[in-house]
Every structure is written in structure tokens, then in C-alpha cells.
Design a protein around this nucleic acid. Structure first.
Lengths: 339, 339
DNA sequence: CAAATTTATGCAATCGCTTGCAATAGAGAT
DNA sequence: ATCTCTATTGCAAGCGATTGCATAAATTTG
């Protein structure tokens, strides 16, 4: 591999000049700069990553933290797309992306400790946001920069994050059903301790209230198909006139669809469904799910942009909201209002 | 951050001694070694990654190459699990994992060029295997070590890889249906130019031949539900007595299931289905899919192990086959043989 | 034309760590 | 007691970049 000395020699200058030339320093004359650049190109030169970082003491790699394995969460295609987004902007900026994972919370924290101690991570990006996350604690403790994707649970004002406006998204989803004539709309969720879910629910509740419609909650209990059927039977006993559902994500919507479609009585009723994330699950469903797209790749990109900017210690934190967008497919039907 | 000098000073030795002590060099006396280690621990010392790599000229990071975005492929949870596996063994070995992605093939190759030129990647791991992959060409050209996950398309003997025995898996899947009394079994695929698919098909064909049963192929044409219905109508016209399907992966199986279940005539027939990968899609289906698990995380781990071992230039390549395992759920039914 | 600037370059130190080789000390041999 | 030989340890030179400061060349100025 060509070093800066090779470049310098070929251009007939000293290494320092070469370095400056390649960094576009103003004090190098145009002709030499050109010579150097030409030489560099000819030698296919790229600065040695380690040497550069060592010399500048400013590391250029972004640490991406994956959540501890929680099968359900983890099989979500979401993550990969965020990672892609992050890596996309990083490589464009000559940075690297490196990963932190762990089987258990302890292991993850330990891995992060090591990464911090090795001192070559500029900023961490957490692909998730969790209550009382030990990783966040560690990061704060060592005063390492980080950006979270999702809404922070604590010190919201002090931490930089990228997120969708999930409340608004919840509102939009419910409103969409209302616009299609639905009046009794169920909200399907699985875990309200997760902010995504509770926010979307809040959004749902907001429109429902504004329209003087009742909140109708349905907690996912679909471990098995039979369990799902049972849950729904109970549900419909209590709320017989529900015509549509807002499901807190596509996967849940698909699950719900599966049980609804397997009971002839329910099937004929053609319940309307709307999900979130616009993932592969939306396409897999039949009818295909109308879904709120949230652009995970974009979330990743924005997070990376924040991570790569210079953040003086006293700077205020940054929050970026990535817009969502409803993707209309075939799971929402117009109905004649029942009222 | 503590440097090696700090450690040395605290232990009352020179940096070189400290270095050697921490690497477990034999020529350092036990007492000094202990002193040094103690000091290091007290200072929470970890060697600076960049400095270390610079000094040893032996880079310790593994480059993980993601395939160029091809939505279908990409939304497969598979990848994340492989990445996890890789990272798991890397961090245990004090290595880092870094990613290479690209919107287009050109961009991906360019990114890899840069990574190579920066000279700090020990080995690349390709998470996919493709015919005439420009990435592979580049890697060979620059004589960079790499491991592929999946079966290499060229120079199989010369390249290290990790894969499942997909032929055997195909055989096992078909055999399982045969064991349950099925005699007319369809094989559902989408793209035979992909080795995974063609291998699984080969396996299927093998058992079918051995049992003097006909090969019955069905190419996925399910862009829309209507298209799927049409395709299947044609199919059943030609093969009215098919009772089960081997689908080349879970997602395809789920798609097939969706269209089969939405036609009353088909639904009553209770076709048996078996898929591959045992992904989230298997669980989402109803009835849940019997599926061949292939252990992506394990694939990643094995790939990482190979990648981290020392490979003298003239060494033979390594190939590791990760076993698969049938996961029995509810999508395969026993039937009275028709023969 | 000499002096004072301005402009461009190169020298050498530094980042933190590793490692070949020289230096030291202690033990054993004669 | 002197000499050899090991067993340990430290010195100093890199690894490949960046950067403050000195220096040389070119230009302007008095």
C-alpha cells in the first residue's frame, strides 16, 4: 500500500507538504497541490486509517449499538435498514461504522466499555430506546457522545435523537379510518412500556377524543392461534360493533389479520386494518396492509449526520423528526357510517 | 484515557516491559508481570486501537459486506442474525466489525476499495454469494482475504466459505412430506440463479427421483394476489393431485399459504407446506409453518472464526457446513397415501 | 539595492504502541 | 575472585500520518 511518503516522493515534495496539499490547505501553492493530488491518484493512495486517527487523536468511527436480542424485536427488518442508512452517510464522509452487540445486557455493556477504553469511537448511535438502559448510563458516565434512534426516556432535552412523530402517526392512522367512515376503532398493541407503542396510542386517543369516539384497546395475546381466537371472541363480545383496527405495527396487524381471516364469521365482516412501518409484512398480508411508512433508512441517515457533526461539550442537543407517510393498500375499506 | 506509559509508571517499569508483560511474553518475570497487570487493571487500561494496529501493522477489524439493496432479499431477518454472530465472536477476540454497504454495485465496490486502501481490514466476510460478483473480483485482485457465507460460484475450492448443506436440506424437506404420505409434491421457488434455491431444488429432485415420484415445479409469480391466484389455477389444472409443497423459503411459503387460504376450494384441501429458514415468517403463518432451521447466527460465527484465524498465503481454504434442523409446527399433515 | 514582508516548503516532534538489540544484574562455573 | 552465561529489563527506532515552527524563496517596499 502506498504511504504518504511515496506520494510525496513521486510529487517531489516532503510528506508534510503532501499532507497539507491533500487536505486542501490554503498555504500550498496551486501547482504543488495539483502535483500531489495527481501523484496520490496515480498511486491509488488512501491515508492509513490507524495512522491518521492516531495522529489527529480524533477518531472517525461511529459505534452502532444493537439492542440485546429479544427475538421479536430483532427479527424486524427495520434495524438493517437503519444500519444501511447510517453506513451510507458514514462512508460518504470517510468514517467507518462498527457494531456493538451482546447476548445479554451485561455483555453488551462490557463490549461498549472496551470500545470506549480503546478510544476510537467518535459517537455511538443506539438503534433503540429503552427505559433505564444500562448502556446509556455507561455512555453518560464516561461522557461519550451518543445519539439515539427513538425517543429518549430521560433527559430528553439533553440527548440528541432522531425519531418519527409517533403521536402524530397514531393520529393520522386513526384519522384515516375515521375518514373512511369507521366509528368504532380498536387499537392493537403488545407492550405499552415501549414509547413507540404508547405514543402511537396517544395519537390514536387524541383523534378519538376529538371526534367523541370511544377508545377501544386490544392487547395482543396471540402466542398461539387458539389464544388469539379466544382473545378476539372476548373482545368482540365487549365491542361488537368495531369495524376497524389500528395496529401498533405491521407484524401485529398481520397476526390479527391471520386470526380474523380464519374464522368465517369474522372474515365476511371485512375488518379494516392499518399498520405501521410499511415493512415486508405489509406486502405479505392479504389484503395488503395500508401502513404508515416511517423510513428507517432515513432515520439512520439523520442519526449519522448528527453523530458526525462536531459537538462542543456545551452545545445543545439536536433532535430530528423524520416524517412519516401513509401508504395506501387494500386493507382499509370505506363503510357507511353507523351513527 | 490511560496510556501504556501510565501503566508502566504505576508499575515502576518501562513501557516496553509493560507491553510485553501484558502480552504474556515469557521473558518477563512473574512478579513484574503481575505488577503490570495489576496496574493496568487499576487504571482501566485498554490499548489504543489505532496505535496498536499501526505498530503491529496487523489490522484487527473484519469487514462485513452487505449485499446491494434488493428489497426482497434485504428485508430478510437473516442478515442481522449473521451479523450478530460475527460480531459476537469478533468482540470476544478483541476485534472490531465494520460494515460495507452500497446503494449500487458501483458504490459498494468503491467503498470496499477505500477500505482496502486504508489498509485496516484483516478479512472481509460477504453475507451473500452471487454470480460474477464485482466485489469478489476486487478482493481477489488486491489479494485480500475473504470468507463468503453461502456457496461460492467460482473457485469453490480456493475460497473459504460457510454454508448450509442446502441440497441435503432440500432432500430432508421433501422426504418429510413423503414420510407423511404425500406423493405429489410441488417445489416452489422464485429465482433459480441463486444457488440456495437451485441447491434446495436439487435436493428435492433427488428424493423425488429415488422414490420414483415426479418433479413438479412452481415458479413464484405472486406480485399481486390476483396474479398468485391465476398462477395457481393454471398449476392445479396441470397437477390436480398435488397435496403438499416445499417452498424454497418461509416467505414464499407464507405467500403461497395466503393465496391458498383465501380460496375456499383450496382451503378445504389443507395443503401441506414446508419452508426454509425458520424465520419470523414461519411463526406468523397460520397454521404455523414447519420449516428447516438454518441457524444464521451460527453461520456468522463460523465465518468470523475463519476470518480471524491466521491464513498463510499458501494455505488451503476452509469450508464449514452448518447443520440444519427441521422444526415441526403445524403446516404438514399426514395423509393416506394415494398410490 | 537592501530590508521587510509575504508565500511556500521542509524539519522534526508527536500520537500510543511494539520490538530488535543492547545493557544490566545475578547465578553458576572454574 | 574472575569470567561466562542467562534471565530480565530498558533504550530507541519505527509504524504512517499531522502540525507547530523554522527556513528558504519570492515579492514588495523604502
Amino acid at each position: 500500500m502506498a504511504t504518504i511518503k511515496d506520494v510525496a516522493q513521486r510529487a517531489g515534495v516532503s510528506p508534510s507538504t503532501a499532507s497539507r496539499a491533500m487536505h486542501g490547505s490554503k498555504i500550498i501553492s496551486k501547482p504543488t497541490r495539483d502535483k500531489v493530488i495527481k501523484a496520490a491518484r496515480e498511486l491509488n493512495y488512501a491515508p492509513d486509517f490507524n495512522a491518521q486517527n492516531l495522529a489527529t487523536k480524533a477518531s472517525n468511527t461511529i459505534g452502532v449499538v444493537l439492542p440485546v436480542d429479544h427475538h421479536e424485536i430483532f427479527s424486524n427488518p427495520f434495524f438493517l435498514e437503519m444500519i444501511r442508512g447510517i453506513n451510507e452517510v458514514c462512508s460518504k464522509n470517510g468514517s467507518m461504522t462498527t457494531l456493538a452487540t451482546g447476548i445479554s445486557s451485561d455483555e453488551l455493556v462490557h463490549n461498549i466499555d472496551v470500545m470506549i477504553a480503546q478510544g476510537h469511537i467518535r459517537t455511538f448511535i443506539l438503534l433503540y430506546s429503552e427505559k433505564d438502559d444500562p448502556v446509556v448510563e455507561r455512555l453518560k458516565q464516561f461522557d461519550v457522545q451518543y445519539v439515539v434512534i427513538g425517543k429518549p426516556y430521560q433527559e430528553v432535552n439533553k440527548t440528541s435523537y432522531v425519531d418519527n412523530d409517533n403521536i402524530q402517526a397514531g393520529t393520522d392512522a386513526a384519522q384515516y379510518l375515521i375518514d373512511h367512515g369507521h366509528r368504532r376503532i380498536g387499537f392493537l398493541y403488545s407492550d405499552l412500556s415501549r414509547m413507540v407503542q404508547s405514543d402511537r396510542m396517544l395519537g390514536y386517543q387524541r383523534v378519538m377524543m376529538q371526534n367523541h369516539l370511544p377508545n377501544i384497546m386490544l392487547e395482543e395475546r396471540f402466542e398461539t392461534h387458539a389464544a388469539g381466537v379466544k382473545t378476539l371472541h372476548k373482545f368482540f363480545e365487549q365491542y361488537p360493533d368495531v369495524t376497524g383496527f389500528v395496529a401498533v405495527d405491521d407484524m401485529l396487524a398481520l397476526k390479527l389479520q391471520q386470526v380474523l381471516h380464519n374464522d368465517p364469521d369474522w372474515k365476511v365482516k371485512q375488518f379494516s386494518l392499518i399498520g405501521f412501518n410499511n415493512s415486508i409484512f405489509s406486502d405479505l398480508a392479504h389484503p395488503m396492509l395500508t401502513s404508515i411508512a416511517v423510513f428507517p433508512q432515513r432515520l439512520g441517515e439523520e442519526a449519522a449526520k448528527i453523530a458526525m457533526a462536531d459537538h462542543p461539550a456545551d452545545e445543545l442537543s439536536t433532535a430530528v423528526i423524520v416524517p412519516h407517510q401513509i401508504v395506501k393498500r387494500h386493507s382499509v375499506h370505506q363503510i357507511k357510517s353507523l351513527q
